[in-house]
Design a protein around this nucleic acid. Sequence first.
DNA 1: AACTGTGAAGTTTTTCACAGCC
DNA 2: GGCTGTGAAAAACTTCACAGTT
Lengths: 210, 210
Amino acid sequence: MSAKSQAVIPDIVIGRLPLYLRALRRLQQEDKSVTSSQELGGRLDISSAQIRKDLSHFGGFGKQGTGYQIEYLIDKLQDVLQVNQEWMVAVIGAGNLGIAISHYRGFQDRGFRIAHLFDISPQKIGQRIGEFVVQPVSSMRAIIRGEGIKIAMLAVPAEDAQAVADQLVDAGVMAILNYAPININVPAAVQIQYIDPVTHLQHMTFYLDD
Amino acid sequence: MSAKSQAVIPDIVIGRLPLYLRALRRLQQEDKSVTSSQELGGRLDISSAQIRKDLSHFGGFGKQGTGYQIEYLIDKLQDVLQVNQEWMVAVIGAGNLGIAISHYRGFQDRGFRIAHLFDISPQKIGQRIGEFVVQPVSSMRAIIRGEGIKIAMLAVPAEDAQAVADQLVDAGVMAILNYAPININVPAAVQIQYIDPVTHLQHMTFYLDD
DNA sequence: AACTGTGAAGTTTTTCACAGCC
DNA sequence: GGCTGTGAAAAACTTCACAGTT
């Protein structure tokens, strides 16, 4: 056990930090400079105790009697999540979804920059999509390795997702955000997250009448 | 307490059912007809005990010694989630994301059909997007109410999301899938779910080295 | 007076482990 | 022998409630 040993933070806590960060940025846009666990919780539908407990894992970010300095807390959370730097991201798949992702302006100021857009289809390769030129999957490995890209967003058909993920891992990618509606197996050291709108919709229909 | 009173099922269990369903459909495509909690769990990285416990909330779907009949289990889970019917969905926002959503083929066979695409911009209104003609937000309320649409996908700028959500609720929508990177407040009876790729990316960067 | 940070208590969720059935 | 369904145990997570600080 090293002198600087860190307690393990529950993953569920880590998952909430981006939500806190997002809400704090919003408060900042509203020209507030201080907030409280109660105000933040009200916005997010999370109890104030939960927020205080979550934040306490990383040290005392607040002031008793006062609350949290928004700018300071944003900075600290960005440090914790390592998004005070700008991560290069590769997008694989230049279909409608890949194109929408590539055009999305919302990555920039939250720690990410799309660096490349890949596709396997000869029709797509060479095409200009926003500021990107679609590159062939065949050169993906070399580029990702060469530039040390660690994060990829997968927007290929479900059938191809596992094979492409394998190539990404081989190329050195350590975090994959998979938009294909299929489970992917990756080594334990590689992070994976899923976005599938249908799972969310099906979650909600359970509660609908009729 | 009615004679047919149902025990309350934990929401976290409901959230996993769509994942089971998705994996089962995949197994079916691979021409399997029977599976086990172990096989399913292996695909999903969920323990077999968890899967058995989750499914047991709804009655005995499996056979001891044998496992689960895939077709039967799919049908039962679709019943539970109420996706054996086809839900009409409205999409609001005909930007890159709304367009990508409107083109996506993956809703059809999983219980959902996009019925309308709305936007507020005069440049967008009347434009043809795939099989849809973009309709004005001003007619949204009447159409949603008139057709009894209960589900909406929100793909508008963060600034407009709360206002549009309020209109949707007023129009009778009971479930909203919000793609705007902002928290929305809706009445407790209305379901809301979020998709924000950046929160997933930030969750993963916590674990990345350097 | 207002609010944080935190042990302790309470609740929920997951895993264990095995009886019972095919 | 293989697998489900399930009570009981364990682990994880959330809330309570309050001492301590501004």
